[in-house]
């Protein structure tokens, strides 16, 4: 399906993917009684944080992420992906690691689980990272920094 005015958009795939992500977060709540927040679970798995989900549970969740991506890739006949060059990946990775620990979450924990719960902290966090994300891309475009 095409979205009028946005020839490159994939609204149906987006909505389907979003529903799967929502179901995944719901399953985590239903089964384990916890938030499916990827940055927190990652920190827990590698021993950077001590509390929260059990360590083997954290690894199980993290192993599931590429496993699920593989399933989608297999069913859809391959996935398109265009990545930034290593210097940008390193800078971005460092900032994302620092920011998500300081801010207690990322797009999954704050953006999906917290926003849907109307958590005040998550709503503020989500608006903040959306605004700085949009501003960063806009500034990089003005400076002519081609990343991808």
């Amino acid at each position: 399906m095409m979205l009028p005015g946005f020839p490159d958009a994939a609204p149906l795939e987006g909505l389907g993917g979003g529903i799967l992500i929502g179901l995944a977060a719901a399953l985590m709540l239903l089964g384990a009684g916890r938030i499916a927040g990827v940055s927190g679970i990652t920190a827990r798995a590698v021993g950077i944080s001590d509390g929260g989900i059990s360590r083997d549970g954290a690894w199980a969740f993290l192993i599931g992420l590429p496993l699920g991506a593989l399933i989608t890739a297999a069913l859809s006949g391959g996935l398109e992906a265009q990545f930034a060059s290593p210097p940008f990946l390193i800078i971005a990775g460092l900032i994302v690691g620092i920011g998500t620990r300081m801010g207690s979450g990322c797009t999954s924990g704050h953006g999906v689980c917290g926003v849907s719960r109307l958590s005040q902290r998550s709503l503020v966090a989500t608006v903040t990272f959306m605004v700085t994300g949009i501003a960063t891309v806009a500034i990089m475009n003005v400076l002519g920094l081609e990343v991808l």
Partner: peptide, 29 residues
């Protein structure tokens, strides 16, 4: 700290177009 950390995270997200979940999932892509 919540706001500053989230602001930083958004900058990193914007630079490379990756956040933690997709970054890990893309290890097979």
């Amino acid at each position: 700290k919540l706001i500053g950390g989230s602001a930083l995270f958004g900058m990193g997200w914007g630079i490379a177009g990756l956040c933690p979940g997709p970054g890990i999932a893309a290890l097979v892509i």
